[in-house]
């Protein structure tokens, strides 16, 4: 139990550190008043404008010191109130923006992760079983090619081939389409960010499988006459998954990062594209909320990975 409490406490501290750094950086980097007042924000010699500026600062708590604003924000945040957007009306609330857009990004990341895991495991097993042979070498070249390709290049190639040339898939995502259509529209974006990740998983798992296949217990299994398939899937795979699971957890963050590119190229209004737009608009509450949600997701997934270790190997708890 102590192990679990320690991990959770560390996770909370990490999130606090992320929130402080992000909050500080955002407030140093730019002035959000333009979003609220437009050019009036800079019209500091006009008495009417000065009044409007003062009013807006008060309304959006911009007249308070940074630490005070941070604690106001934090106390609201932990209660689920993400604040208001820095716009002339303060609408829509940040929670509205996030709740509308987050499910799209989660769907995309989930699909990409599923794809990467489902593809990489058999790919790694086949490569490990034929290690050093020509098929393994071709597989290695393919994997390196996918890892080396930037996301946007994969997106463009996929779009060109499957949408423009073959006409099999739509080019963009339409948020109001039925669920089935939207899932189909997410296919290419999920492949865009899932393919390089699948290649990384494959390389890692292949390597661990090759090491495992040289262990004595595998030799024993062979001498007992077990089939190659049974040895690979039942005896070699499980002890080889340790690093794989770690990387799957860590890569969730990378997938969210990749989703920014995919959302932009395939016109998906998720939190990745919203994050970019909000940074350019100095809409700090939105940026902060998204950063904290992504960070929380990242931390929670890695907590789960840590806990999963304890199931695979209970010695970790000690």
């Amino acid at each position: 139990m102590r192990y679990y409490v320690q991990r959770v406490a560390l996770a909370i501290l990490l999130l606090l550190a992320v929130s402080m750094l992000t909050f500080g950086a955002l407030n140093i980097l730019g002035d959000p008043l333009f979003n609220i007042l437009g050019p009036v924000a800079g019209d500091v010699n006009n008495p009417d404008s000065i009044k409007m500026i003062a009013l807006a600062k008060k309304e959006f708590s911009l007249d308070r010191s940074l630490p005070v604003r941070y604690f106001i924000w934090l106390s609201d945040f932990v209660r689920g109130d993400f604040g208001v957007t820095f716009s002339s009306t303060g609408q829509p609330p940040v929670s509205g923006v996030v709740s509308e857009r987050l499910p799209r990004t989660i769907s995309l990341v989930f699909l990409a992760q599923m794809f990467a895991v489902v593809v990489s495991i058999p790919w790694a097993i086949i490569a490990a079983a034929r290690a050093g042979k020509i098929s393994d070498r071709i597989s290695t070249i393919n994997a390196f090619f996918l890892v080396a390709m930037p996301n946007f290049a994969i997106a463009v190639i996929l779009k060109f081939v499957f949408s423009l040339k073959l006409g099999w898939t739509p080019i963009t995502y339409v948020a109001d389409d039925p669920l089935r259509s939207r899932l189909f529209q997410l296919l290419l974006p999920a492949l865009t960010i899932g393919l390089p990740v699948a290649a990384v998983y494959q390389r890692l798992l292949r390597s661990d499988l090759i090491t495992t296949l040289q262990q004595d217990f595998i030799l024993l299994a062979r001498t007992k006459g077990l089939s190659k398939t049974r040895i690979l899937f039942v005896h070699a795979l499980r002890p080889s998954l340790f690093s794989f699971i770690t990387v799957v957890g860590l890569n969730t963050g990378a997938l969210i990062g990749g989703s920014i590119v995919a959302e932009t190229v395939f016109r998906i209004p998720g939190i990745g594209s919203t994050l970019v737009e909000s940074i350019f608009r100095n809409d700090f509450p939105v940026v902060l909320a998204i950063v904290m949600i992504v960070a929380s997701g990242f931390v929670v997934i890695n907590l789960l990975v840590d806990f999963a270790y304890t199931l695979i190997d209970p010695r970790v708890r000690r």
Partner: peptide, 14 residues
Amino acid sequence: QNQQMHIQEAALGV
């Protein structure tokens, strides 16, 4: 400049 600042500075003569 980002677009908003660009517009603001044009409007304010900066």
